[in-house]
Design a binder for these strands. Sequence first.
RNA 1: GUCCCCGUAGCUCAACGGAUAGAGUGCUGGCCUCCGGAGCCAGAAAUGCAGGUUCGAUUCCUGCCGGGGACGCCA
Length: 558
Amino acid sequence: MLEQIYTQLKDMIATSLSELLRPECDAQDIHLDIPADKKHGEYATNAALQSARILKKPPMSIARDLVSIIEKRLADHALQSQIKKIEVKSPGFINFYLSPEAFYQVLYQVFEKQQDYGRCDFGQKEKILVEFVSANPTGPLSVAHARQAAVGDAFVNILNHLGFEASKEYYLNDAGNQINILAQSIQLRAREKLGASADFPDDHYQGEYIKDMAKIFIENNNVTSLSDLEKIDVVIIREFGVTYLLNVIKQDLNAFRVYFDYWSHESQVASKDKVAGMVDYLVAKDFIKEEEGALWFKSTMFGDDKDRVLKKSNGDYTYLAPDIVYHQNKFDRGFSRVFDMLGPDHHGYIPRLKAAAQALGRNKDDIEVLIVQLVTLYRQGEMIKMSTRLGQYVTLREVINEVGVDAARFFFLMRHIKVHLDFDLELAKQETSENPVYYIQYAYARINSINKKAKEAHLTPKTSDLSLLSQQEEIDLIKKIGQFTDTLKLCYQQYDPYPLVSYLQEIATIFHKFYDCHRVIDPDEALRSSERLALANATRMILANGLQLLGLSTPERM
RNA sequence: GUCCCCGUAGCUCAACGGAUAGAGUGCUGGCCUCCGGAGCCAGAAAUGCAGGUUCGAUUCCUGCCGGGGACGCCA
């Protein structure tokens, strides 16, 4: 409802302004904002300030002219009953104050839509594929992957709530060079187990889990001697390794409550012949050049700063080649836009991907790359050093075991994706009472507690006379509830679920204040109690929806 | 050398180009005869430096200083 008022009001300001500007020029973009300070009303526009230069008049006088036009138009408009007051404030802002009736619509809507509140057709069912985590199956997931998992999962949930048809995809690099190294690593560790002393190269996977895998492999295949082992093709070991680690990864993700819609295997979607076919296509399009015995993708044609090797002089393809095939595959599957979540070390890869999109005949914005910055783990203020190569890193599983899924997911979500994240394990675990996720969940639990008391008192939520909700804290809460959908849209615009996190903290704060100032169940005022109960339950619905979108639980009690 | 991210309160972080720069934490002091004190209220405390664009800059642009990261015929 507030959304409708917002767009209608914005339209009205735009047309009124263009009346003022005529014939000089057309009205440009109108900004209608929600002021940070509620003293400035529910909405505010800077239209007068912006047109001061064009009209060569003082902003204040433009604002007054604009308001008189708006008021004239308002006279026979449906909006009139929704707007209580229009005010001009120095240096030229126009502030709009809504009538209480406008706010109360929000509550009706929440009760009507329940868990579907906030759903809209904003996304127009656009098919979007979000690929994230996509860690190579060469070891358990680390905390860096964990951040992507939490962010990607929440982001897709939000997109779907906004009316997109978004899916979660994990791309499994099961064909590259690193998989051969994985197989060799297992093989070497198996030899060691069987008594052979072998050098273990630095570029092989050093983690202890490789030794465990070697042991299991030996047992599963009844290998009792070195000669038994020699008879086994390394391909068998490779398959064992990938399958085993894929299973580990899936279990870790499930424990983290992240479930992917699709698992694409490089070996299938980008097989050697498909890659060769893609190269042929690019050659035919003249996007390929040959130099120093290698084939280069002429990505500079599409804005990249240098051309990129696609096929090495030794005949092998680089990572880029199957990746282009893979992205074609995504488009072939009917997705109109694809999002790739990558680590900051891949930011140089973005122009290559955008170039690829264009070489495939798509728009460069059909591939969007979301760079998720690194996570630094701390324990009691001490930084934990990690190295993937040495197999020294904290796994997702360890974080889950130590701080729990809710706290872990929340910590990964509590910063913009573009900034480094400091994650202090002790903070997430020990100071639970000061942990922001509990602050939000506590608000939810409190409402459940109120509901229990209400039931005992035979009170039910009612919205028959919402005008009883006139206290400042009540109005503040209703207004915040009305901003839920806008917040989700902001998440989409920023390609980041963070705004929802901050919104939930804010609404929890407002609720706690409301709770502290006013008794919901007031034995002396049954009628008002019912209305307040309705307000509390609308808040409960928002908290539940928001927490669920972020993949956080909604504990009835704490 | 080129590119990316970040410099805001003691610490960790906010602020679609807007009005008096907000939270948490820590510090000081208050609040349950009552729906859960994992809560609420009050106080002190900040935009790295120099220019530019703008009616208006923490935000955008340029340069500098400082911190982190990336720049392979690796994946």
